[in-house]
């Protein structure tokens, strides 16, 4: 079981508990709680009013904080998983292609050869996440808004600039990388991102053409998984 699953279960349990407490709380009239009512909680004994005040603190503050925290773990960290990306159907072609052993895209080659053991999407798009830069997080917000309101068109287009750092963090300095003389002479351009690794090393994902509804590959890419 993944860490994010633990957090999800945690968030789910707390949501159910919180929901129960809130529905209970909604029916309480504080002005009508008899002053003599006592509530025994193990070793402690409370007045009825104090108990319901504590209940309110739990239902409206403590439990929400825990549930929100746990659920937001997914918003921030759980989204690193491939399955999370695959839940938006516009991303399905990328995931289908990546898992296709017959595909020649960079994503598929990295996946097939096990070069990236987990969170394959995130590993090459690691501008996202807690340590990622804010702009990428905001792009994620924009994507979510676009997707859920249906204000997008297939094929989707990558609007930003893919950062070479995502490649270089693994490849830079390896013997194979160093053996190519031009890697040294274009190093500055790679660092400032004015020259893309993908030029020589090929496409990472299916083309926009393939991801356009009506293209012969579209049905396979969109339906080939799940």
């Amino acid at each position: 079981m993944e860490v994010s699953d633990v957090f999800r279960i945690f968030a789910g349990v707390f949501s159910v508990v919180g929901l129960g407490l809130c529905l209970w709380l909604a029916r309480v009239d504080f002005s009508k709680i008899p002053a003599e009512r006592k509530v025994h909680l193990g070793v402690a004994t409370l007045t009825g009013l104090a108990f319901f005040k504590l209940l309110a603190l739990a239902a409206l503050f403590a439990v929400p904080v825990v549930a929100l925290g746990a659920a937001n773990y997914h918003t921030i960290e759980g989204v690193h998983g491939v399955e999370s990306c695959n839940r938006c159907h516009v991303m399905t072609p990328m995931v289908t292609d990546m898992r296709d052993p017959g595909s020649e895209t960079l994503a598929a080659r990295h996946f097939k050869n096990g070069w990236i053991p987990k969170d394959q999407c995130f590993q090459c798009h690691s501008d996202y996440g807690l340590a990622g830069d804010l702009r990428a997080k905001m792009e994620g917000y924009r994507h979510l808004a676009r997707y859920t309101t249906g204000t997008y068109e297939e094929p989707i287009k990558f609007r930003g600039v893919f950062h070479n750092d995502n490649c270089l963090k693994c490849h830079a300095g390896t013997p194979k990388f160093v053996a190519v003389p031009s890697h040294a002479t274009v190093q500055g351009r790679l660092a400032e991102n004015s020259l893309s690794c993908l030029n020589c090393h090929g496409r990472a994902h299916p083309t926009r053409e393939q991801r356009t509804p009506g293209h012969p590959d579209y049905t396979r890419l969109i339906g080939g998984d799940e």
Partner: peptide, 22 residues
């Protein structure tokens, strides 16, 4: 001219070499 990219819909499927890049 400030940047050159391989054309993904081209016969070369987006792949060019360092000469083309420059």
């Amino acid at each position: 001219v400030v940047d050159i990219r391989g054309h993904e819909d081209g016969h070369n499927k987006g792949v060019i070499c360092v000469k083309g890049t420059m």
